[in-house]
């Protein structure tokens, strides 16, 4: 199923939305991503991913209240859906099961 296969960046965005809880809107997501990954997250990329996630049904969005900032324009808040949660857990499970079968993982050796 298409919806269950998460790309790396999609997974990050989805996690960020979950982490931001009630304040997950595009600009905040960008900032949060930058803070955690240390690489710049462009609005253009994030916006496209958000749009795709919504199409896949992994997130849903609602419009917030109008404020005096942002030129009076409302924010669109995102929220992870049940399907999104399932996809995130699945992704984590896949990783963990793979981690588990690696015998001795030497971090220093790879550096």
């Amino acid at each position: 199923m298409k919806g269950t296969n998460l790309g790396e960046f999609e997974e990050l965005v989805l996690l960020t939305i979950a982490a931001l809880i009630n304040d997950a809107y595009s600009v905040a997501i960008c900032d949060e991503l930058e803070k955690h990954t240390g690489r710049s997250a462009k609005l253009g990329v994030v916006h496209a991913v958000l749009n795709r996630l919504e199409e896949k049904g992994l997130v849903k969005s609602r419009m917030g209240e109008a404020t005096s900032t942002r030129g009076g324009k409302r924010k669109r808040y995102y929220e992870v859906t049940q399907a999104g949660k399932v996809a995130l857990t699945q992704a984590r499970d896949v990783r963990e099961s793979l981690w588990r079968i690696i015998p001795g993982f030497n971090l220093e050796g790879s550096l």
């Binding site: 595009s26 916006h47 419009m63 900032t69 942002r70 030129g71 324009k73 409302r74 669109r76």
Partner: peptide, 10 residues
């Protein structure tokens, strides 16, 4: 609307 808002914020 939200896109315009995002642009404004930036």
């Amino acid at each position: 609307e939200d896109l315009e808002g995002d642009f404004n914020e930036y």
